[in-house]
Design a protein around this nucleic acid. Structure first.
Length: 271
DNA sequence: AAATATACCTGACTGC
DNA sequence: TGCAGTCAGGTATATT
């Protein structure tokens, strides 16, 4: 489901729900066998902890507590939602975080590609340590990007989706940012000029920011923790628009598979 | 070493 | 209606 904008929208929803900094009274693992199994000692590590904040690093949510951090990656289909006291658990509800005052947050994930872990210090966590800069950070500059890709033989689309180069860009926003920057997704990364890198950094930031403003993209069943779907999908310029007219030049949008992922582009606007 | 392919899962949708 | 095939917002691991 989620690229950076969707995860950020979820983070903001959770932050609001947990703003009074409740204590965790109980953690229930209904089904811990995610793609990476949830470690059982997470329950005892977090029991009684008080929520201080909900942060985000890349596509990971970080529940910051008095006892350490709960890391949550939503994979393709993960969601967090509030469960009222009279509601029953549904199929694919794998974890319950029970808080004082009848508040219960449920992790739901049909495909179980999501990830949950406890970390005392997330900055040294194996999953986070290899990640590149946040797209809105000054470290993600045109010069940095050019340096990173100048000898890369993969496509530029694969490069910007590489979480070691920049975090948060997934399959949808990669196609969108490349369209906005006028670069074909299948172009070899080392052929992308410094000037194009400048454009690309700008457009990645712009499209991610716009998507956050719109509450994320709700294709299939994405919902923020406040149960509201986003509407950025209505603003897609190229994604899932194969055969439709380019919004800018009216040429027909094409679809190409790059590294196994569908990629959409305009043959006239992108070089 | 780096680039690409495959695997991990379930559900929704297509075409027969 | 059912059944087989394909595809999906991600990422770790295997294979070239």
């Amino acid at each position: 489901m989620p690229e950076l904008p969707e995860v950020e929208v979820v983070r903001r929803g959770l932050e609001k729900i947990l703003q009074h900094q409740p204590h965790l009274t109980e953690i229930q693992l209904h089904r811990p066998d995610l793609r990476d199994p949830i470690p059982v000692d997470l329950v005892k590590s977090l029991k009684g902890a008080q929520i201080l904040a909900v942060d985000r690093r890349a596509k990971y949510l970080l529940f910051h507590t008095t006892k350490g951090f709960l890391l949550s990656h939503l994979g393709m289909t993960g969601t967090w939602r509030c469960l009222s006291s009279d509601e029953k658990l549904r199929k694919h509800d794998h974890v319950s975080l029970c808080f004082e005052g009848n508040l219960q947050l449920v992790y739901h994930d049909p495909r179980r590609f999501g990830y949950l872990d406890f970390a005392k210090d997330p900055t040294t966590h194996a999953k986070l340590i290899k990640l590149g800069p946040e797209p809105f950070d000054d470290a993600f500059s045109a010069e940095y990007l050019r340096q990173k890709i100048k000898s890369k033989k993969s496509t530029i689309k694969s490069a910007i989706m590489d979480q070691a180069i920049v975090v948060g860009v997934g399959n949808i926003y990669a196609s969108e940012a490349l369209f906005l920057a006028g670069i074909r997704p299948q172009k070899k990364a080392y052929l992308v000029s410094s000037l194009s890198c400048r454009m690309l950094v700008e457009k990645i930031r712009w499209v991610l920011a716009k998507a956050i403003e719109s509450g994320g993209s709700s294709i299939s069943d994405f919902k923020g923790a406040d149960a509201q779907g986003g509407y950025f999908q209505t603003q897609f310029q190229v994604y899932d628009r194969k055969g439709l007219k380019c919004v800018r030049c009216r040429a027909l949008i094409r679809e190409t598979r790059i590294a196994g992922r569908s990629s959409f582009w305009c043959p006239r606007c992108q070089k």
